[in-house]
């Protein structure tokens, strides 16, 4: 029988299109979680301001913030899920090595991040429509600004994809040693209670960065580091033991 040669990029491409079909349930859960988030967003956030001449303004702010945060949560869960045994075993039923498996996973997560970013940013218009139709409230949204719309999608996708890399690393660590299942939440909760300044610093480093280029550099390097760490961890893992 003739022997075949395997090309890494070809294999990754095949695995990627395979995963788009195989992990389709992840996409339906994205839709589900965003619908729930839209429901939560319908109340909006209230605010009020008054002038010295007795004029008072009561605002109700609507935004897709909750949808974006929920989507990031979805990204975390999805990234962890695809590092688990059943998902890795799907790869090893067919042609793979550990690198191609991770690369195709990352491509899948990138696709999910882009999809999540686009839908999250579009959901504001659905919010606006629902508020108008069912709450009889005209929500002013200002003129449609195409560059800002694209900026919204890019920024959201960067956040979601970065969360994916965190989830993927957590998943990889858990695969190495199950004790990380306990250790990771303990670390996170511990850092909230003890090292409050660390969280504040992280928040300032990423979320408060007003320069797009700096933000891009920061978040891409972070994401790349997390994925590289995960790849090198998973590269030594045995499967189907």
């Amino acid at each position: 029988m003739s022997l075949s040669t395997a090309n890494l990029m070809e294999t990754v491409k095949k695995q990627y299109s395979f995963k788009l079909k195989a992990n389709i349930d992840a996409i339906s859960s994205l839709v589900g979680i965003q619908l729930v988030a839209i429901l939560f967003s319908l109340g909006g956030i209230g605010g009020s301001l008054s002038s010295s001449e007795g004029l008072q303004i009561n605002f109700n702010y609507y935004s897709a913030d909750v949808v974006l945060v929920f989507t990031m949560f979805w990204a975390l869960v999805t990234a962890i899920t695809i590092t688990t045994k059943p998902y890795r075993n799907h790869d090893f039923t067919f042609v793979t090595n550990r690198l191609s498996s991770s690369l195709s996973n990352i491509l899948f997560l990138l696709t999910g991040s882009l999809l999540g970013a686009v839908t999250a940013n579009l959901s504001r218009y659905l919010l606006q429509l629902i508020a108008f139709l069912f709450r009889d409230q005209q929500v002013y949204s200002g003129p449609f600004d195409f560059p800002v719309f694209i900026l919204g999608i890019v920024m959201s996708a960067l956040y979601i994809f970065c969360v994916c890399s965190i989830g993927y690393l957590i998943g990889a660590l858990v695969q190495v040693n199950k004790s990380f299942v306990l250790l990771v939440p303990v670390l996170i909760i511990g850092s909230i209670f003890l090292g409050e300044s660390i969280l504040v610093q992280l928040f300032q480093f990423y979320v408060m960065e007003p320069n797009f280029v700096f933000f891009l550099i920061k978040i891409l390097i972070t994401t790349a580091l997390f994925f590289l760490a995960s790849i090198s961890i998973l590269n030594r893992m045995e499967v189907r033991r």
């Binding site: 040669t5 395997a6 890494l8 550990r98």
Partner: peptide, 9 residues
């Protein structure tokens, strides 16, 4: 182990 060539064949 971790060999694409073995895996495809």
């Amino acid at each position: 182990f971790n060999n694409l060539y073995t895996s495809v064949n």
